[in-house]
């Protein structure tokens, strides 16, 4: 399978006063198209920083990131945004729904940005798939945490992304709701054939993916395939 994400010699440093804080050091790995991939590690290991870099939300100090065949270092902020709109979906720990938009409007945004004519129709179908057909006109504040994450799932799949990044997708949910959301995530992923990259603390969740990258102190500890097919 071809690689959808290629990371080579990645390094990220932050300045804090006069000090330089190295968050990621010599990171190299590939993610195959259609693969489920998890990045695990303790707090402060650089997981979220790595996600930000992989998705083109931030830029590395050195190293290269190739996402969907495009070298992110050669793209400016707006070009990276365009690439994300066409190829990338996101799920966040704190849902990150737009509070002033209804569930339907939230799901429609990525499609509308693409200029899709069927934004509403497709969004309604996705909301129905995640079991929220009766909540389409509700604002995020009128939905429970589980419902909000399901809206976020529908939004993440709205633009039929090639790759989906999930940052601690169950971090703000109770165990039961979290499990339902994860089941739904894997179902939708299988159905759409999307590459899935999950950042998590949860080793049980990581073990449900095909490959696990372990980070510690900004360095790769291991990068192993699991038995999941």
């Amino acid at each position: 399978m071809p690689n959808i994400l290629k990371i080579n010699g990645l390094e990220k440093t932050y300045s804090s006063g006069n000090k330089q804080l190295t968050v990621l050091q010599n990171i190299s790995f590939d993610v195959e198209k259609g693969q489920t991939f998890s990045i695990v590690g303790p707090s402060g290991s650089g997981k979220t920083t790595l996600l930000g870099l992989c998705a083109g939300l931030d830029q590395p100090n050195s190293g290269t990131i190739e996402l969907c065949g495009q070298d992110l270092n050669t793209l400016n902020e707006d070009q990276r945004a365009q690439l994300r709109n066409k190829n990338v979906g996101f799920i966040f720990q704190n849902f990150q729904l737009l509070p002033t938009l209804t569930a339907l409007e939230n799901v429609s945004v990525p499609l509308e940005l693409q200029g899709s004519k069927d934004a509403v129709k497709n969004s309604l179908a996705l909301l129905e798939k995640v079991g929220l057909a009766d909540r389409v006109h509700h604002y995020p504040s009128q939905l429970s945490g589980g419902e909000q994450q399901r809206v976020a799932l529908a939004r993440a799949f709205a633009n039929a992304p090639s790759i989906l990044f999930a940052d601690e997708p169950t971090g703000n949910l109770d165990e039961e709701t979290g499990e339902k959301v994860i089941q739904l995530l894997f179902e939708l992923n299988k159905e759409a054939g999307t590459t899935l990259v999950i950042i998590t603390h949860d080793l049980d969740l990581a073990n449900r993916t095909q490959q696990i990258l372990r980070l510690k102190g900004g360095k790769i500890l291991t990068n192993e395939r699991t038995t999941v097919q």
Partner: peptide, 16 residues
């Protein structure tokens, strides 16, 4: 600002 960051994350340009 956080909503704008989400919009940009989903692909909205700075101008939009």
């Amino acid at each position: 600002l956080s909503a704008i960051a989400v919009l940009k994350c989903m692909g909205a340009s700075r101008m939009q």
